[in-house]
Amino acid sequence: MKNLGIGLILVSFLPWVTVAAVPFLAVSIAQKAVLVPVLLGSAEVMFWLGILIVGKEVAERYRRWLNPRYLWEKIRRSFR
């Protein structure tokens, strides 16, 4: 069950990436205006469902991976 939760968390980042491609789609502006909030809303729902499934302990363990300071330090150490 935890694998499903972690999968939902990882898949929730895909709609955020897809939002960057929306301006280049061959659809009307009105459709684009509807598509962006739908993508962002679905990303949030998937993310929070994943958090609910994996539980607080697992979410806090992986939380530091998404911390920009932690990632920046990791990048800086790899280039030294």
Rank of each mutant, 00 (worst) to 15 (best):
I51D: 07
G50I: 03
K56N: 14
P15D: 06
W72S: 14
I51H: 06
K74C: 13
P23S: 08
W16V: 15
L40R: 04
V58D: 03
L14M: 13
K56H: 13
P23L: 09
P23Y: 12
I53Q: 00
F13I: 15
W16C: 03
I9A: 04
L10N: 05
L25E: 00
L14H: 05
V17E: 06
L8R: 02
L40T: 00
L35Y: 00
M46F: 08
S42D: 04
L52P: 00
V19I: 15
R64Q: 14
K74W: 08
S28A: 09
R63K: 15
V17K: 13
A30P: 01
F79Q: 07
V38Q: 08
N3E: 03
F24V: 13
W72K: 13
R77S: 12
L8K: 02
R77T: 03
N3Q: 05
S42C: 02
P68H: 03
L25R: 10
L40G: 05
Y62E: 11
R80L: 07
V22Y: 08
T18N: 03
N3S: 12
G7N: 04
R80G: 07
L35F: 06
V27H: 09
V27F: 09
S78D: 01
W48E: 03
A33L: 10
A43D: 14
G7E: 00
V45Y: 13
K2Q: 06
V19T: 02
I29C: 05
L4W: 15
L4R: 11
K32Y: 10
R64G: 01
K2C: 04
R61F: 10
M46S: 09
L39Y: 00
L52N: 01
E73Y: 12
V19R: 01
L40Y: 10
R63H: 11
G5F: 06
K74Y: 07
A33C: 10
S42V: 05
I29K: 00
V19F: 04
L39Q: 00
V19C: 10
L71E: 11
L35C: 08
V36D: 02
P68G: 06
Y70N: 02
L71A: 15
F79R: 06
L49K: 02
I53L: 11
A21F: 15
F47S: 09
Y70P: 02
Y70V: 12
V45G: 03
R80W: 05
A59Q: 14
E73R: 11
L10D: 03
E60G: 13
V34Y: 13
P15M: 09
L10Q: 09
L25Y: 06
I9T: 08
L25M: 15
R64W: 11
E73H: 12
A33K: 14
T18C: 13
A43R: 07
I51P: 02
I53Y: 02
R76Y: 07
K74A: 11
A59C: 05
R61W: 11
G5N: 04
V34L: 14
A33M: 09
G41L: 01
G55I: 02
K32R: 15
